[in-house]
Design a binder for these strands. Structure first.
Length: 581
DNA sequence: GCCGTTTTCGGCCCGACTGTTTTCAGTCG
């Protein structure tokens, strides 16, 4: 059973307990365990079978036993029992914004409402406002939410690249105003997460309303409203929600820290501060009174650095603020010095017009040099790609000659004649060995036959890893964020094989892929695998996707040293498998 | 239900907003 399925079952059980009136913290415990399990890089089912699941933070004996029951029986007995008591459609109803378990439970108990249709009908007939504490306005709002849900479906997350495109344009427009002082992107976009639900902008300004008005009248914005004196909200034409908050300059650090999150990071930060007698919020850091209440002497900070310093910690880079041990490391001064995009010396995965790329060798090479690289591997697709633009053996031979000629007389930069070869279902590659041996760089990727068992897929990829001609595995799990699940593969076993053979694993920087994920990157590095950050660029512009590959590397706590292609050519070339032959 | 350089029991972040209420509960981020 996949970690995501286990997490979903625990989330559901949490909601069922909530409907059943359990204490809040029990429900929160299930949510937290689900969150940790969802993003855990290796099989939670296996951890549970080994009795090691309680090593995960937020998982104790009870939840470990529940997970074991779940993977053995396919469902949770407690959940099944509670589903006898509450129709499953009640859980659906709790997903309506503004409607929680408490309210849904009352509708069920007092009005017998068990599903969305019943809820909508009752609201239309004005029956809900008969309930104590639930008036006409609440009824109207609820009806509007149900209708909106029907029209648009639930609000979906967008890719980081889409969120950043809008966020950066809006932030830039606001910065240009004479009334603006500082404008920064906060939230999940600043943490460079894979997806964003909305965009948070934080600003200081001599005249806050000038910024709010500029946001409202920006061409990207479809609708907008004010949120008090120091805030504005907007929705772009693509449906992305924008929240702008304007801070007095002296509290800018507090506000930026708060709205950068993540929620887990902030919760842990505040719990830690509380133990030291301090109460942290976006309104400043206050001492605790004798009764343990927040006193009104809150101290304000203009920068985030000062916020963390006040709490006895080193500054935490936004990409690390996910509640994964960064606060402990910050307190001990043991945070890693994260790799930066400027550290990169080469890109080892791109396409040209030879296969399905849009730009020529010359154009790609010029762009790579402009980015300050020392090398670029041309890795057009191989002969059995299946999407047209096949590169036959003869074409690849010609490419090798072309690159040889191109490199002649050039100093400080080199092209590598390479290929992105297919890993066929039996683990073999689709060029003959003699041809592959002539290449300067070989990436092997799975592009076909995704739906095979985990065991077969793992064996298939490990066969390619054990091939001495393969330098690197491309986009290992094949996922497309928000669009396609990763295929079934044992990443732990793959990482072990890659470390053993000196085969590198790629972080593919295409914002749709970011594959390896940050969790798998961490696992691979801990297993001793060399990581390369590549773009898989199909045109000059997408060489810029390196920023997303590096974002994933940073979120995996990687340093410059952990990423092989931060090295100059001389050093990097020695890391290739062939250098050890 | 989880967790412990203040605890193995008694705690468990903080504030805004909303709608309904004279002091608060529920929901959200």
């Amino acid at each position: 059973m996949r970690n995501g399925e286990i997490a979903a079952a625990l989330d559901e059980l949490g909601t069922l307990y909530e409907l059943d009136g359990a204490v809040r913290y029990r429900v929160l415990a299930y949510r937290e365990a689900a969150r940790v399990i969802r993003s855990h890089p290796v099989s939670v089912e296996e951890l549970a079978r080994q009795g090691k699941l309680t090593e995960l933070p937020g998982v104790g004996d009870t939840i470990e036993a529940k997970v074991l029951a779940l993977v053995d029986e396919g469902s949770l007995p407690q959940a099944e029992k509670l589903k006898q008591k509450f129709p499953p459609t009640l859980i659906e109803a709790t997903r309506i914004p503004g409607l929680g378990a408490k309210t849904v439970r009352r509708f069920y108990d007092e009005l017998g409402i068990a599903d969305l249709e019943g809820l909508e009908a009752a609201a239309r007939q004005g029956k809900l406002s008969d309930l104590k504490g639930f008036g006409e306005k609440a009824e109207k709002n609820l009806l509007a939410e149900i209708e909106r849900l029907g029209d648009e479906g639930p609000t979906v997350r967008v890719l980081l690249s889409d969120a950043l495109e809008a966020a950066e344009e809006l932030a830039e427009a606001l910065r240009e105003l004479p009334e603006a002082d500082r404008v920064e992107i906060a939230g999940s976009a600043r943490r460079l997460a894979e997806t964003c639900k909305d965009v948070d902008l934080i600003a200081t300004a001599s005249d806050p309303s000038a910024l709010a008005e500029a946001l409202q009248s920006h061409p990207l914005v479809a609708q907008a409203g004010r949120g008090g004196d120091a805030a504005a909200r907007a929705v772009t034409h693509t449906g992305l929600a924008i929240d702008l908050r304007i801070s007095p300059p002296e509290a800018y650090g507090n506000l930026l820290q708060h709205f950068t999150g993540s929620a887990e990071h902030n919760v842990q930060l505040r719990e830690r501060a509380l133990a030291a007698g301090l109460s942290v919020s976006e309104l400043g850091i206050a001492n605790l009174t004798e009764e343990g209440k927040r006193s009104d002497d809150a101290e304000l900070f203009a920068t985030e650095e000062e916020v963390y310093e006040k709490l006895g910690m080193a500054y935490v880079e936004p990409e690390l603020r996910e509640g994964r041990g960064e606060l402990e490391a910050a307190r001990k001064g043991k945070l890693p010095k994260l790799v930066r995009e400027e550290d990169m010396r080469g890109d080892l995965h791109c396409h040209t017009t030879l296969s399905d790329g849009h730009d020529t060798i010359d154009e790609m090479a010029a762009a790579a040099r402009e980015r300050g690289y020392e090398y670029l591997a041309l890795t057009d697709h191989s002969a059995s790609h299946g999407f047209g633009n096949h590169v036959t053996d003869e074409m690849l031979e010609a490419r090798i000659e072309e690159v040889r000629a191109w490199n002649k007389g050039k100093r400080g930069f080199r092209l590598l004649a390479g290929s992105e070869v297919n890993i066929l279902p039996d683990g073999s590659l689709d060029y003959p060995d003699e041809l592959l041996a002539e290449l300067g760089w070989v990436i092997a990727s799975v592009h076909t036959a995704f739906r095979i068992s985990e065991k077969k897929m793992t064996e298939r990829v490990i066969t390619a890893i054990e091939n001495p001609l393969v330098d690197c595995i491309g986009h290992l799990t094949g996922r497309l964020i928000l669009r396609r699940e990763p295929y079934d593969i044992d990443v732990e076993a793959v990482a072990e094989a890659a470390a053993r053979t000196g085969t590198m694993l790629e972080i593919n920087g295409n914002p749709n892929r970011r594959d390896l994920s940050e969790h798998h990157v961490r696992l691979a590095v801990d297993a001793g695998v060399r990581i390369v950050a590549n773009t898989d660029a199909h045109r000059v512009r997408t060489l810029g996707n390196m920023r997303y590959g590096i974002a994933t590397a940073r979120r995996a706590w990687l340093t410059k040293r952990d990423v092989a292609n931060t090295r100059g050519w001389r050093e990097f070339s020695k890391l290739r498998k062939r250098a050890k032959r």
